[in-house]
Design a protein around this nucleic acid. Structure first.
Length: 522
RNA sequence: GGCGAAGUAGCUCAGCUGGUUAGAGCGGUGGAAUCAUAAUCCAUAGGUCGGGGGUUCAAGUCCCUCCUUCGCUACCA
């Protein structure tokens, strides 16, 4: 029996609508989850929203709304995004849910029972206007020696009662864990940062707040709410049942991998494992920090006006086109650049021209020259064998290997190489010419192509599930062979002999056009 | 300042533990073909692998230094 696979996205903070970064993370995580399912693993895929904390409260107040009400609305946008983008999450979790509060308090009690929590005072330079503490080093001096925050607001020395977590105690255990588990933090650059950070010494962490109440109440200290990260990270275990000893919990914890953005690596590779160690729970096997998407090489920000709405892109170019572009063009773990031109170019070249056209030209020949019946195979030619071998290797060796390494763009590169080989084969064999000279040979060629295209469609399912399924449906490929283990099995002849007939093929990957310019950039 | 990452063909990037003529896609150029979504296939385009120095029989691939860009340097998420 294969090992269960538990994967999560970060739990998004919904103080705004989802942006392209959220979509990217969800899509990448979804592709991995889908791959593992097709790879025969039992998968649990969790995503959701982290709705507590000061910012949500502030945002709501700024809008004159109930915080809970705003959270409901914002969270719904994230859920909607998942539906639109074909994200196959098993659970969409909200930190405001009752079971999550219960889980957060349970883990709190474990930390407390382990002697890692103590009540003290948090002191620092506090800006009332920003509602945030700042480090001495961040401050600037204004007129008359007034200390100012980086935002230019006045700060004053403030003392607040707070619970502290003995993070310092875990410095050594964490470093030992990193050393013993080299795959725990990926990519390596993130691991280096984390190790250096921890080696630099860990201070105890303030894990409760009294300045607002939008959060999980601290057990026994009702005027405190838990530090949002402690609460948010707990989602990864509350999602599958913790603190109850459920079947899902037993099966899926520890997580196989948390997929997160590079900006929150520390929370996942220092705080989270420390909390878990303290709670006596196993640690996730891997934390992967992906890169950011840049708009034409520049950071996206509201002030630059280059923030991209993923829903708009999906609508404009199609869900699968967007998914394909992001997974193909961006090397997972590194920053990537986005632009409408790049999407159009990439998707047209790979999906429309190469793969889509390959399927279309082949299926059209079968439809016209064989009346839609799947042609028989009349003996093996070395060229056929070579192509089948090449495609088979890409589908059952290269793509899975790259996926296991979370190298999705490389998996797609291998996939494209196989697509190129098929198009080259079509041109060399020229089945349209064989129709008159050697009809049997034509049938063998078309059958070979049919098999290859089906395998390629099976392999690409994690990336473009909607289109791949449509194509496989058109081709009559049985459900039980639509996975990596059985893609290369003997299904073609039974399907052909069963009298399956394809309909007039319908193109699945229309060529995209660049949308007309809408207003000049400022 | 400290630590780290990166700088490879016009563009976007591959190049693992050093080893035959430095690779791919897109774009460009020249052919072929016409089944197909004017899609495809073949050939090709002569990049001092950021600058300099060093180690080695041999370096894009290791070491030093300089330049440029970027990330991290804790309690806003």
């Amino acid at each position: 029996m294969s090992e269960p696979f538990y994967i999560t996205t970060a739990i998004a903070y919904p103080n705004g609508k989802p942006h392209i970064g959220h979509a990217y993370e969800a899509i990448a995580t979804d592709a991995i989850a889908r791959f593992q399912r097709l790879n025969g693993r039992e998968v649990c895929f969790v995503t959701g929203t982290d709705e507590h904390g000061l910012k949500m409260d502030q945002t709501a107040r700024g809008l004159g709304r109930e915080t809970r009400d705003l959270a409901d609305e914002m969270s719904s946008y994230f859920k909607q995004m998942c539906a639109t983008l074909d994200i196959s999450a098993d659970h969409f979790c909200r930190t405001t849910a009752d079971n999550h509060h219960k889980a957060s308090q349970a883990i709190w009690k474990r930390l407390e029972a382990n002697g890692d929590l103590y009540l003290d005072r948090y002191e620092g330079w506090y800006s009332v206007r920003d509602e945030a503490y700042y480090d001495e080093a961040e401050l600037t001096e204004g007129e008359g020696g007034q200390k100012l925050s980086p935002q230019g607001t006045p700060v004053e020395w403030t003392v607040e009662e707070s619970w502290f977590f003995r993070l310092s105690k875990y410095e050594k255990p964490l470093l030992d864990y990193y050393a013993a588990n080299p795959e725990f933090i990926r990519p390596d650059s993130r691991k280096n940062e984390t190790v250096k950070f921890v080696e630099g010494g860990l201070k105890d962490l303030s894990v409760s707040r009294t300045s607002f109440d939008w959060g999980v109440k601290v057990p026994g200290s009702e005027n405190h709410v838990m530090y949002v990260w402690l609460d948010a990270l707990t989602t990864y275990i509350s999602a599958i049942g913790f603190p109850d000893d459920t079947e899902e919990w037993r099966k899926f914890w520890p997580a196989s991998v948390h997929i997160i953005g590079k900006d929150i690596v520390r929370f996942h590779t220092v705080y989270w494992p420390a909390f878990l160690m303290s709670a006596g729970l196993p640690l996730p096997k891997m934390v992967f920090g992906h890169g950011f998407l840049l708009s034409r090489g520049e950071k996206m920000s509201k002030s630059l006006g280059n923030v991209v709405d993923p829903m708009e892109l999906a609508e404009l170019f199609g869900v699968d086109a967007l998914r394909y572009f992001l997974l193909r063009e961006v090397s997972f773990g590194q920053d990537g650049s986005y632009s409408p031109e790049a999407i159009v170019t990439r998707v047209n070249a790979d999906l429309a021209n190469s793969f889509g056209n390959l399927a279309q030209r082949t299926l059209s020949l079968v439809f016209k020259n064989c009346e839609g019946y799947l042609p028989a195979i009349h003996g093996h030619h070395p060229d056929d064998q070579a192509l089948l071998e090449l495609v088979g290797n890409a589908v059952s060796v290269q793509i899975p290997t790259h996926f296991e390494d979370l190298a999705m763009s490389q998996a797609l590169e291998a996939w494209m190489q196989a697509v190129f080989a098929c198009n080259a084969y079509v041109d060399v064999q020229a089945p349209w010419a064989l129709k008159k000279t050697d009809p049997e040979r034509m049938e063998t060629v078309l059958a070979t192509l049919f098999i290859c295209i089906a395998q390629l469609a099976i392999a690409v399912q994690p990336f473009i599930p909607g289109s791949a399924t449509k194509l496989l449906d058109q081709m009559g490929v049985p459900d039980d062979v639509r996975n990596y283990a059985r893609a290369g099995s003997h299904w073609y002849s039974p399907l052909a002999e069963g009298g399956f007939q394809i309909a007039q093929p319908v193109g699945l990957f229309p060529r995209l056009e660049l949308p007309a310019e809408e207003g000049a950039a400022a």
